[in-house]
């Protein structure tokens, strides 16, 4: 086995082109578990932690694939509230100090916590190889259970997101507050200026996915220009449509039926919180 230690992105892309079988390692919080348990024996590990380009975020926003969760929480909480909320629920402090969004995308687990947020907020994933750079909308990134749109010679370089244009919420069901893989999860983003809603489910289908019917229904119901308290019937219908967008399975963490139920509850509640934020903001302006 080889341990490859590029210092620059260009060098890393060169190495990945020569050794497409090399496994990238960022925070190692997925890769090292597989190594320690003999589940993976790659011919090489490609260490990404020395590459300064991947550890930076710039206004706009472009968040480098190697920015760990703790920095998203501390530095980007105001601009990316949804992503910061999801980041706060990942693992433990030690895991958040090390784990990265790039790693979450690389692993592409249906249960990964950042995925519903990236889908609901219209994120675009930047990937690169010696052949050039590709911009992949989050909606086209997840292809199957632990499969993503990355080619063998490509690396994930960044996630592009616009600073939140309205309230965002994330919610996750698990057996305790820390250290849980989501039984199921849900993210919502409101875009008041565009009369638009983003909604996506996690851990409730082979891939994380958006709930387009729920989004369209809610966008038609919400009066962004003149926000009034929401009818319970609207929240309920939204919850139902979110639940219907999922195709969960029974597994050790929960049954399909439970997941469907929990998604409807989370969708209703997070909508309530997000809408309240908008109402409160409106009052503050008046």
């Amino acid at each position: 086995m080889d341990f490859l230690r590029p210092e620059t992105l260009a060098e890393a892309l060169e190495l990945k082109a020569q050794r497409p079988d090399a496994v990238p390692i960022a925070g190692g919080t997925d890769v090292m578990v597989e190594m320690n348990y003999d589940h993976r024996r790659p011919s090489a590990l490609l260490d990404l932690t020395r590459i300064a380009e991947l550890q930076q975020w710039t206004e706009g926003l472009r968040v480098g694939a190697g920015v760990p969760y703790v920095r998203i929480i501390d530095e980007l909480g105001a601009q990316l509230p949804g992503l910061a909320m999801a980041s706060r629920t990942v693992g433990s402090p030690q895991i958040r100090n090390r784990g990265t969004v790039g790693g979450n995308l690389g692993a592409a687990s249906p249960a990964g916590d950042t995925h519903p947020v990236l889908l609901a907020s219209g994120a675009v994933i930047e990937v690169a190889s010696v052949r050039g750079t590709r911009m992949i909308p989050a909606t086209e990134f997840y292809l199957g259970v632990k499969r993503n749109a990355l080619e063998a010679d490509e690396l994930i370089t960044a996630v592009h997101l616009t600073p939140a244009a309205g309230p965002q919420q994330f919610s996750k069901v698990g057996t305790r507050n820390a250290m849980v893989i989501a039984v199921c999860s849900f993210a919502i983003s409101l875009f008041p200026a565009e009369n638009r809603v983003g909604a996506a489910v996690g851990s409730a289908a082979p891939t994380p996915r958006r709930a387009p019917e729920a989004e369209a229904f809610l966008a038609a119901e919400l009066d962004f220009a003149n926000p009034k308290p929401l009818l319970d019937s609207v929240k309920r219908e939204f919850g139902e449509l979110v639940s219907r967008a999922a195709s969960p399975i029974d597994d050790v963490r929960g049954s399909a039926e439970y997941r469907k139920h929990a998604l409807a509850v989370m969708a209703r509640r997070t909508l309530g919180w997000a809408w309240q934020e908008l109402l409160d903001g409106d009052k503050a302006c008046a």
Binding site: F3, I25, G27, G28, T29, V31, M32, V33, M35, N36, Y37, L45, D47, V70, G91, S92, P93, Q94, I95, N97, R98, M179
Partner: peptide, 22 residues
Amino acid sequence: QGECGSCTVYLDDVPVCACLVA
């Protein structure tokens, strides 16, 4: 596997699970 924290060390002043650092 990062679950227990008994291997916690500082790596460049940041606490991490040493079992998950290559």
